[in-house]
Design a protein around this nucleic acid. Sequence first.
DNA 1: GCCAACGTTGGC
DNA 2: GCCAACGTTGGC
Length: 135
Amino acid sequence: MQYRLIKTEPYKYSWEKFVKEKKTFWDGVRNYQARNNLQAMKKWDICLWYHSNEWKEIIGTAKVVKEAYQDPTTDDDRWVAVDLVPEKQLNKPVTLEQIKQEKNLQEMTLLKQQRLSVAPVTKEEYNRIISLGMS
DNA sequence: GCCAACGTTGGC
DNA sequence: GCCAACGTTGGC
């Protein structure tokens, strides 16, 4: 089981819309590092769902239900997509501000590489976020 | 809306 | 293969 963090801009594709639709495919990644992270995803891996821009918070988690396949939005075979379904919503979103203040979360890729749209997350970081979000 | 950080492109 | 120029992202 692996954990990752994926970013969306809420006005493009929000958590609310995701929950309503019950499923989405994660496409449009045009960055090699993010692509590599996408390709490494396995079925049932968990992704933290992060809203960038004005929200700046982790709001819920998603489960991978289909591993990387050719991105349907492009003919370019360098890019891939995965299918996700909502797993759980946090009682209380974990904000970027909180993450910055958490001693144990300083090493998160989210903080180190702000532009990466699909980032790895360790089990410890994941557990920490969930306990913050569920408290 | 600005700008820093960083990824990508293309000329050499 | 290097690196300057350029474009995009995302926090503020």
